[in-house]
Amino acid sequence: MNETVLAMTLAAAVAAGTPLALAAIGELITERAGILNLGVEGMMLLGAVTTFLVSLATGSPWIGMAAGALAGAGLSAAHAFLTITLRANQIVSGLALVIFGTGLSTFLGRPVEGMPLPRESRLPRMNIQLLQDLPLLGRVLFQQDVVVYGTWVIAALTAFYLFRTRPGLSLRAVGESPATADVMGLRVNTIRYVHTLVGGLLGGGAGAYLMLARVPAWSQAATTNGIGFIAIALVVFASWRPWRALLGALIFGLALRANFALQAAGVTFIPAEFLAMTPYLLTILVLIALSFSDLRRRAGAPEALGVPYAREER
């Protein structure tokens, strides 16, 4: 593999990992509040189709992206109401979001299925001066679009927020022990609502980015392709830490792109379907490996993840 192919593959992996990173960081924030939202795939799909329709109508990818993120937040609001206020089962509610989001996005996208977005409503590339001329790294990291850089900023901000600010501390307290947080005077339900919505914004944004930068046209089956589910696994993989989620997303981005790279390199004896399975199988292997020994103790799952909080029943 010569250097150009390597650079192209790595650059593509960085881009492919970006929606995954966005969705995973969003899910991470939600889970830190103790809310498990399995509906990422649904939020991404709805975000993607909304982005497509709005970008097409307005001609602006940015308005489209904002609309897509809001659509994701809208779905997560339903999850928040059901699981926080009504204390419904978080697993079932999350899956309901997947089913509802898939159905609704396909329904809304049917008239435009397979239609490509015009060039002006796609994301422009943004090369970083000076850095883009670095050998290899310049090509891989600094000739991307603005959302890629934005995702790094979001990862940094999330890490700072979680571990270096007071609201971040409150958030972690709510995820670890809502009863204690409540006694401390924190508004458990409000904090959970806010962070579930933020998770939805990022999930919808991830779908929007897929639509604007990654896939050529709207198609329900091909747009997200299970990325939302990998994002959920990635949170465990990253043991609920933003930087690790970003790194994990890049590794998965590479696995997602390895397919094309291997084909380009003339490796054809492994069927494409089996290569496409690797990110899923890899995740399962890592999860099982993480469960061995005391690694898991330090893995850092929020203690109250998935448990509804009812003040009068604690």
């Binding site: 649904g42 339903a78 109401f81 059901l82 009504l86 419904a88 089962n89 079932v92 509610s93 899956l95 309901a96 979001l97 997947v98 089913i99 509802f100 989001g101 898939t102 159905g103 609704l104 396909t106 329904f107 049917r110 329900q220």
Partner: peptide
């Protein structure tokens, strides 16, 4: 026909609610 899938999801959401 995806209206059917959407209805399925919506029924589940409301049933949970």
């Amino acid at each position: 026909m995806e209206i059917a899938v959407m209805l399925e999801g919506a029924i589940l959401l409301f049933a949970l609610g």
